[in-house]
Design a protein around this nucleic acid. Structure first.
Lengths: 191, 191
DNA sequence: AGGACGGGTAGACAGTGTCTACTCGCCGTG
DNA sequence: CACGGCGAGTAGACACTGTCTACCCGTCCT
C-alpha cells in the first residue's frame, strides 16, 4: 500500500525511527515494529538476528541524522574553530532535545555494551573533528583531553536537561546560557 | 534461614542492591528478586505496587550510599571549597565506576520519568551544597549555572568512561586527568 | 470463640524475544 | 518443460516477564 518494495530491512528501520519519535523508546518492541511494518513477528529475524541489532540499526540512523545536521551547519567550514565548536554544540543539544526518544536510544547502555564496533565508530569521526578544532582553539592544552571533557559535558547537559534537573536547579528556561558557560569553561573566555 | 525477620520490604531492596552489583541491571526482574528473597512473585506487590517502584527504592539506596560517602570524605568540612569540590568529584566518579550497575540504575530514564519527586529531591541537597561551594570558589560567576555545568560534566564523564569511549579517544587509562581538566575548566586554574 | 485483616501464595492473562518447522513463489538448471 | 533448491515470510511453540485476582492462613482484638 505505502511504498511496497522498499525492502523489508530498511522499512523496519523506518518504522522504528517513526515509532521512537512518536511513542518513545519503550514502544520499540520487536513485535510492535513488525506489526507496523505489516509483517509477522518472525520476519525481522531474517535481517536482524536479534532485537538489539534492530535497535542498533535504528540508533545508527540517529547518528547519521545528527552527523548530517552537523555537516550542514558547518557549511564550508570557513568559520573560526571556536565558532565551529559552538555550532556543533548547538546542533547537538538541539537534536538531543527535539529527538529525545532517539537520543535516549542512541546512548542506551545495553546497545553500547554489545555492538562494540557498530555505534562507537559512528561517533568517532565527529570526535576527531572536535579534537582538531579544540587543538586549533587551545594550542596550549591536551586537545584530546579537552575535547573529551567537552563532549562529556555536552552529553551530560543534554541528559540532565532532558529530565528537567537543570531547569529546576539553575532556574534557566533555555540551554543556551548553559552551553555558553560550558564553551567558555573549556575553551576560555570569548575574547 | 538468613536474617529471617528483617521485614520483606527492606529485604527485597537488599536483594536488589546485591543483585545489581553482581549480575547487572538487566537481572533486576521482579520475579528474580522475589525468588532470591525466597517469596512468591506476588509478594512484593504488597510493598511496591509496581516493578518501577521497587527499582526506585533500590536506586534510592544508591543515592543514600553515595551521599554517605560524600559526607564521610568531606569530614569536618575545613578544607577549602575548591578542595571539597574536588573531593566530591573524586567520590562520585569512583562510586560510578565501581558500582556501574547501580549507577546505571540510578539514572535510568524510565525511573526518572516517573517518581518525579522521589529520586530527584534525593540529589537536590548535594546540588545546593555544590552551588554553595562553587559560589565561594568563583564569586564572580553565576554559581547555579556553573554548578549545573560542572555536575553535568561529571555525569557525562562517568557515562562515557563507563562504556569506554573516553579511554579509546583520549588514550588515558585513568579518569583523574579528566577530572582535573574538568575542575580547572569550571573553577579556574588551581592558583 | 469468632471474625477481621495483614501478609503471603498461586494461578491466570497478555505481552515479550527467540527458536523451529513450514510454506510459497521464483529462478536457474537438467 | 519439469523440477529442485532457496530466499523470504508465516505461524506456532517456549520460557519469561509484569500485573491482576482469588484464595488462604495465622495473629490479634473484642
Amino acid at each position: 500500500m505505502n511504498e511496497p518494495n522498499t525492502g523489508l530491512r530498511s522499512r523496519l528501520v523506518d518504522v522504528g525511527v517513526e515509532l521512537v519519535a512518536t511513542e518513545g523508546v519503550q514502544a520499540l518492541s520487536l513485535r510492535e515494529i513488525a506489526r507496523r511494518a505489516g509483517v509477522s513477528h518472525g520476519a525481522p529475524r531474517r535481517y536482524f538476528p536479534t532485537h538489539l541489532e534492530l535497535l542498533s540499526a535504528i540508533a545508527r540512523r540517529g547518528f547519521e541524522e545528527l552527523a548530517g545536521r552537523g555537516a550542514a551547519a558547518l557549511g564550508d567550514g570557513t568559520a573560526s574553530p571556536r565558532e565551529q565548536i559552538a555550532t556543533l554544540g548547538r546542533v547537538y543539544l538541539d537534536f538531543a532535545l527535539t529527538h529525545r526518544g532517539m537520543h535516549e536510544l542512541m546512548f542506551r547502555h545495553d546497545l553500547l555494551r554489545s555492538d562494540r564496533l557498530g555505534l562507537r565508530d559512528a561517533s568517532l569521526p565527529v570526535f576527531s573533528l572536535l579534537v582538531d578544532l579544540v587543538g586549533r582553539t587551545r594550542p596550549d592544552a591536551d586537545a584530546r583531553l579537552v575535547a573529551g571533557a567537552l563532549l562529556a559535558n555536552l552529553y551530560g547537559i543534554a541528559q540532565l536537561w532532558t529530565w528537567g534537573s537543570l531547569q529546576l536547579t539553575t532556574g534557566a528556561d533555555s540551554v543556551v546560557p548553559l552551553l555558553d558557560a560550558v564553551l567558555e569553561a573549556h575553551l576560555g573566555r570569548e575574547w
